[in-house]
């Protein structure tokens, strides 16, 4: 964004990469995939780079509102400094915090999740998928992330993207409003599970495997990690792959 600002220009959209998207090996691939798509459709975008920090979501959900608000004020100063209007993010937690929690502290932006952007691009004809491509007839199951689905009510955008891939979408027994969490939300990602009978991600992986799908599609870097680990725990990593939606599109387009 600093470079855009130096030239006195504004990109069409700010891509909020997020911590996982920046640092996590697996999530970085999603970040790069989304960049490829944005380039392919010719949508100008900027990133904050080193000026971006955690939105504060994990701190807030863990109970540390002090730290959350520190992060919020800091990020809002930066975003407002660049006069950002529109943000896309590949993380539903960042999406939720930017969209629903920052306005209270003076950060007002139009925030969309990357699956919503993909749906828009497909609907507008800017992003054309190859029918009968890589995924034709393949069974794909879709895992609703809590913060995109139940919390923000986005159920159809990701599904319509999957349909555009010409794949066979098979639903898990718990889906949409009833979807089962991967186990990472509420800062569980950053701690050991409380004592219990099973890990949540393994329970969810079981449900995904029951569908007989060979691909599990996700929309969240934490779900991606949890589902991958869950599939591994069931020793199915050779047969079943876990991908973010945008990665499936990149594969389809051969980008």
């Amino acid at each position: 964004m600093a470079e855009w600002a130096a030239e006195g220009k504004q990109p069409e959209i700010l891509f909020w990469v997020g911590c996982a998207g920046s640092y996590d090996d697996r999530a970085q691939k999603v970040t790069v995939a989304l960049c490829k798509i944005l380039d392919a459709v010719g949508m100008s975008f900027g990133v904050l780079g080193t000026e971006e920090t955690c939105t504060g979501d994990p701190a807030r959900r863990a109970g540390n509102d002090f730290l959350f608000q520190m992060m919020a004020f800091q990020n809002i100063q930066v975003l407002n400094g660049y006069e950002v209007k529109k943000i896309v993010t590949a993380c539903p937690h960042c999406f939720n915090t930017l969209k629903n929690e920052y306005p209270e502290y003076g950060g007002h932006y139009e925030v969309i999740h990357h699956t919503q952007l993909l749906q828009q691009l497909i609907n507008e004809g800017k992003l054309k998928l190859e029918g009968g491509g890589t995924f034709k007839g393949k069974k794909i199951t879709y895992h609703d992330s809590c913060y995109l689905g139940r919390v923000n009510g986005v159920y159809e955008a990701p599904r319509s993207v999957l349909e555009a891939l010409d794949a066979e979408l098979v639903e898990m027994k718990r889906c949409r409003t009833n979807g089962l969490c991967c186990g990472a939300g509420g800062s569980q990602m950053f701690k050991e599970d409380e004592p219990g009978k099973q890990r949540i991600n393994e329970a969810r992986a079981e449900e995904a495997l029951e569908t007989g799908a060979t691909i599990i599609a996700a929309n969240c870097p934490f779900c991606l990690t949890m589902m991958t680990d869950g599939v591994k725990a069931k020793d199915k990593q050779e047969e079943v792959m876990v991908y973010d939606l945008v990665e499936l599109i990149v594969q389809n387009k051969g980008l």
Binding site: C146, R150, T177, N178, G183, A184, G185, G186, Q188, E194
Partner: peptide, 10 residues
């Protein structure tokens, strides 16, 4: 133990 998934709220 809460994952803040909102399933209970729903």
């Amino acid at each position: 133990a809460c994952t803040t998934c909102n399933a209970c709220v729903e």
